[in-house]
Design a protein around this nucleic acid. Structure first.
Lengths: 339, 339
DNA sequence: CTGTTAGCGCGTTCAA
DNA sequence: TTGAACGCGCTAACAG
């Protein structure tokens, strides 16, 4: 293992000069800097991460939980996007398991106390999420992926988040269908009070009303609910078709439900089914679907984390040089139309 | 942040004694140990991971890659199983992105040189995988999840692996169908020379031949190939049914293909479709499927990594106290029959 | 069984 | 602009 000393000896300078070349290149004379960087590449030197963390008391590491069963179809894509963004910013990602809130708090404790981690990404937060309280109480840096629907003030500066505007995505999709001559457009959503689910349904509802495609009462009849699995989608769609034989499109809140809806279609029916998430299922069935901008989400998440860590470091009264950006980010998804 | 010194002062002992209580409890007198552990819990002390790693030169961290598009439907479940196992063994998991082999090698270099990571889990290895060569050449500890089908000697002691016996799983499923009166059992597999795919097909083929359900020529007619997506599964199954109207069961190499096969079924047909992976799709459609023992896989992976790291540490000639276990592990999956 | 000493590799503070 | 000293928190060696 090659250390900073080896580089220093090779370049004929002191170890501190090498350190400066890496962390503060401007204060080193260009000629010596060239000498040092040359040695670095030649010896294949990489700073020891543990030593650096020990010294700086910053781990530059984001923790993200993995649940026993994936609640979202795009979770692995989010992970990849985050890993990509982290790589570009010289940040590491640590994975921890999440079985229950209680277990997760224990992990929070271990990860932060050990100095392994200095920020968290929380996905699928619930009403009155105890994790948020814990993190705020312990002055930890974190960002939610998904809005904190339960919160009184969604724009609480203590609770930053990045989310994708599902309502806008579904609205775009509905408009697309209308522009292509569809008139009786139904919707299959999730049951219950899920913020994400209700938000997406609004996208359909508002667009339909705005375009005067149906009255509010008619919309109630054009709307069904189903748990997020194929069979539920299938029966919901079948019931919908029975009630409204003239349906010519079905907008679904997820690709999973859309797959079920396709199965409920009578042979030869000219009814468009659309999904949400741009999963391989939708791609394979050539369904129009809504694509979440995950790379961009990851970018914003990492940006917010960095800004928050920076502002915490320089806790002197003076303002930071660069102003912090917005810490509540709603990104617009795009619709994907096959062929 | 509470350090080992604080605990030592609180308990009235030296820092070294505290350290011993944590890492070598047996050599500390029980009475003082009680004193120390009490202080530890009262102060909420957790050792600083970076300092420990710097000192011990062991990171106790496993790196695992995440691909832009998940090649396996069980990847997130594997991650959760690994995270669970790691948690139980006081090991951390770092996630890195994998876009190409070249990029992955660069990551290997950064992660190992920085001392962040001292072992790797490789998933979906290909023929002549350059990553394996790199890791061996750089004396890194690693374990494959999945057999190295391309290798001349699959039991090369330098290339440890953990895999699930897909052939056995499919054979079990085929036997189950036969025992429940199915006679004309077809198979839909993946095209090409994928080791995993050919292995699973063998499970069906051998069982059918052994049970004298069909001749080798008939089996060829009962077998179809499709890329791993729903639509391909659907058309493959439709073609199969056309060729063999008397089929009464279809064994599929994946839940995805099984989903497609279900869509190809004429209404009211009494044909059983089975899948592989026990995904939510199979559960929702109530398809018989094959469940991979991922928790056990993760357990074996971590065990092998630990044993290899230990044996590397004590590289004195003398044998290690405990004998190392087997480093090529083939686990049996189980079949899941709904209802 | 316990305490003392030393150093893992790095970055920051001073002095030159 | 560069170099010397110091310490981040911990543990492996030894001394007591």
């Amino acid at each position: 293992m090659v250390s900073i000393k080896d580089v220093a000896r090779d370049a004929g300078v002191s170890p501190q000069t090498v350190s400066n070349c890496i962390n503060n290149p401007r204060i080193v004379k260009p000629s010596t800097r060239a000498l040092v960087t040359d040695s670095i590449t030649r010896l294949g030197y990489t700073p020891n991460a543990s030593a650096r963390r020990l010294r700086t008391q910053r781990s530059n590491t984001i923790a993200i939980g993995i649940a026993p069963v994936s609640y979202s179809r795009v979770y692995d894509r989010l992970l990849h996007a985050l890993a990509t963004e982290a790589d570009a910013n010289d940040i590491r990602i640590i994975l921890y398991k999440t079985d229950s809130y209680q277990d997760e708090l224990r992990q929070f404790n271990a990860l932060t106390a050990g100095g392994d981690v200095d920020s968290f990404v929380l996905t699928d937060t619930g009403h009155n999420d105890p994790r948020i309280d814990w993190l705020i109480e312990h002055h930890q840096t974190f960002v939610l992926f998904g809005r904190p629907w339960g919160l009184d003030d969604m724009y609480d500066p203590d609770v930053p988040w990045v989310d994708v505007d599902g309502r806008h995505g579904i609205a775009q999709m509905t408009r697309h269908l209308i522009l292509h001559g569809r008139k009786r457009i139904a919707f299959i959503g999730w049951p219950g009070l899920s913020g994400t689910g209700m938000d997406r349904r609004l996208g359909w509802q508002e667009t339909m009303l705005d375009a005067k495609m149906a009255s509010a009462e008619e919309l109630a009849g054009l709307c069904a609910e189903a748990e997020d699995d194929i069979t539920a989608g299938q029966s919901a769609c079948a019931a919908l078709l029975e009630r409204n034989p003239d349906i010519d499109a079905v907008v679904c809140v997820s690709d999973t439900l859309a797959t079920g809806a396709v199965m409920a279609m009578p042979a030869g029916a000219n009814i468009t089914v659309t999904g949400f998430d741009n999963t391989v299922s939708a791609q394979s069935l050539k369904l129009p679907t809504v694509d979440q901008p995950l790379a961009q989400s990851a970018h914003e998440i990492v940006r917010i984390i960095q800004e928050r860590l920076d502002s915490r470091t320089s806790q002197t009264g003076r303002d930071e040089s660069r102003a912090a950006g917005e810490h509540h980010i709603l990104l617009a998804p795009s619709i994907v139309i096959p062929e």
